[in-house]
């Protein structure tokens, strides 16, 4: 078996670490949008039930905040291995086999899926940006393209993170001996 040069391994590891760091930071920041959403809902309820004031912008803000939390953490969830797996057989697999499956999964399933979806997500954002799209409600929030950007960016970050997972799995494959 051909061993890759140590310097290559180090360079690749550093690149992977950079991606992981970025995903982590974006995820941690986005997660704070959950309590922010809670505060918004409480504020909205208070205004509506106590002061009889209804605000369409405040209502729309709720799903905007939720969308940031969801899209911002999707890549981080893959990094932390939170996404649901069926691990009936996985539990009995060697780390090498698992790394192999992960690599094939990224290459054959996740990347093709993300490729198609992310490309159209960016074009949806581009179109919305071009039109300076706002809420269909005249008194709603402006700049709906921001949230379309969040969608496209979140998917792209997952794309990036899946490359990191791929790299990590390949490193496991080349740096461990096949089990006898």
């Amino acid at each position: 078996m051909v061993r890759p040069q140590l310097s290559t391994v180090v360079a690749v590891s550093q690149a992977l670490a950079a991606i992981q760091w970025f995903t982590l930071r974006v995820g941690q920041a986005s997660a704070l949008f959950v309590p922010l959403l809670m505060v918004t809902v409480v504020l909205n309820v208070t205004l509506r039930y106590i002061f009889s004031i209804g605000s369409i912008q405040l209502e729309e803000l709720q799903w905007h905040l939720n969308a940031v939390a969801v899209m911002g953490c999707m890549a981080w969830a893959y990094q932390k291995d939170v996404h649901v797996r069926v691990d009936v057989f996985r539990n009995r697999m060697s780390p090498r086999v698992r790394a192999g499956i992960e690599a094939v999964g990224v290459l054959v399933l996740l990347l093709p899926f993300l490729w198609f979806v992310t490309v159209s997500a960016w074009s949806i954002f581009g179109y919305s940006w071009h039109l300076k799209e706002g809420s269909p409600m005249p008194s709603g929030l402006p700049a709906r393209y921001l949230i379309k950007f969040v969608m496209a960016a979140g998917l792209s970050l997952l794309f990036l993170q899946s490359l990191a997972v791929l790299g990590r799995s390949l490193l496991v494959l080349v740096s461990t001996e096949p089990s006898a």
Binding site: H83, V84, R85, V86, F89, R90, I101, L114
Partner: peptide, 22 residues
């Protein structure tokens, strides 16, 4: 069948669908 590989179910759903679209 692919789901039993232990790869995240969400990605298996999307990936298998893309393969069948191809």
């Amino acid at each position: 069948i692919v789901m039993f590989s232990g790869y995240p179910v969400a990605f298996v759903l999307g990936g298998v669908a893309v393969l069948f679209a191809i």
